[in-house]
């Protein structure tokens, strides 16, 4: 999959951070959780997921550690950092403002 556009990239980041706010988990679990919480609507492609995870870790919003997964295998778990938590709050507020504004525009009646 080619490089995502900025908007999509930002959205994936937000979803990942929010998911991790609910608890530490590894990459597969994050994708599964997003799918289930959104009722199968949002399917995050691996081509977007893993680069996003590495990018977020590089930027310092999340941190990783190796641990044992639910099926007794070694997996890389990600967790939100404190800075990441703050960043999530900011981005969530921005997102809500943005989507409210879009909704207003879409609801406007011609004339």
């Amino acid at each position: 999959m080619s490089k995502s556009s900025d908007l999509v990239q930002g959205t994936v980041d937000l979803l990942i951070l929010k998911t991790l706010a609910l608890g530490d988990m590894h990459g597969w679990a994050i994708a599964a959780r997003i799918r289930s919480v959104s009722n199968e609507v949002l399917q995050v492609n691996q081509g977007a997921l893993y680069p996003a995870l590495h990018r977020l870790e590089h930027a310092g919003w999340i941190k990783s550690s190796w641990g044992e997964s639910e099926n007794r295998r070694r997996a890389k778990f990600y967790a939100l950092t404190r800075a990441g938590r703050k960043y999530l709050e900011q981005e969530q507020a921005t997102w809500e403002r943005l989507s409210a504004a879009i909704a207003l525009v879409l609801k406007s009646v011609p004339g």
Partner: peptide, 11 residues
């Protein structure tokens, strides 16, 4: 490598 392998096997 390991991280990706884990994902695939989990899938």
């Amino acid at each position: 490598d390991e991280e990706i392998r884990f994902h695939i096997e989990r899938q």
